[in-house]
Amino acid sequence: MTNLLDQSPNQNELDDLAALCDQIWVIKDGCLLMADSPQTVFNQLDDPAFDKPAAWKMAKKLELKLDGCYPVNARELKEAAENAN
């Protein structure tokens, strides 16, 4: 599943996207900024026009990483927390 992200939808939708999509395309002002996996998009996209999934924000706050990146969905977050313990 590919989703077009044209400035962030609400928090729940972002978390659903991060859990369900294979690819997310990020579009701003008519330009395709990124087209990649949710993991890559939410870890690399640094633009105040776009929010991040709650799982990513929680992982950042708790300093939980998985393969060097912050998790972007609940499954990854749980795995990162288990690895940290």
């Binding site: 709650a54 799982a55 927390a81």
Partner: peptide, 11 residues
Amino acid sequence: PAKTWQLSQLL
């Protein structure tokens, strides 16, 4: 509940 609430419970 809020996503943060659900994730906190998960952890």
